[in-house]
């Protein structure tokens, strides 16, 4: 890997981390766990369209790991990893069908998959299907948040590349 690329990825990881930590400090809009904007996803979506899948994965998982460490919430790590893995896999596959004009859709799909991943882990941890009751609310918020971050990523990519 060229030094320039490594530096770029490092910077993007740092940027995503800052966004992630700042977002944690914002008060929750809805008292449903898991509902959030997911602003750090802007960086992930940008990376998917700019770097190879392996490079994006490195960026994403360093961000998730460091994010859990910095926020001091290691319990949430497993939910983030499960959500992040599903989200990353889905977005990488969909990248072939969605060109740069349809970035918003990639982000929506990523957000929805992220929510599904988190609920799945919650069901395993709680050994109960009760938390499925959260899923419809999370899907709606995921679509809206995904649309927002997707449009942001689209604008950012257009200006950067």
């Amino acid at each position: 890997m060229k030094t320039k690329k490594l530096t770029k990825l490092g910077l993007l990881t740092c940027l995503a981390l800052i966004i992630f930590i700042i977002e944690l400090r914002l008060p929750d809009l809805v008292p449903i766990p898991g509902v959030k904007l997911g602003l750090a996803n802007i960086v992930t979506v940008y990376c998917i369209y700019t770097f190879t899948p392996a490079e994006t994965a490195m960026m994403l998982f360093s961000r998730i790991l460091l994010g859990a460490l910095f926020s001091g919430n290691l319990m949430a790590l497993w939910y983030s990893i499960a959500g992040g893995m599903l989200c990353f896999a889905g977005m990488t596959l969909l990248r072939r069908f969605a060109d740069e004009k349809n970035m918003w859709f990639l982000s929506v799909a990523g957000a929805v998959l992220h929510n599904i991943g988190q609920i799945t882990v919650a069901m395993i941890v709680l050994k109960s299907t009760t938390v499925l009751g959260y899923l419809p609310f999370l899907l709606i918020s995921g679509c809206i948040a995904g649309l927002f971050t997707g449009i942001c990523a689209q604008l950012v990519t257009k200006r950067l590349n």
């Binding site: 319990m75 919650a122 709680l126 009760t130 938390v131 009751g133 959260y134």
Partner: peptide, 19 residues
């Protein structure tokens, strides 16, 4: 929606909620 405490694995719910 149920009340869930994930760290302590506690769930409070109405009997006919969820799946």
């Amino acid at each position: 929606t149920p009340i869930v405490c994930l760290p302590n694995r506690l769930v409070i719910e109405y009997e006919n909620s969820g799946l």
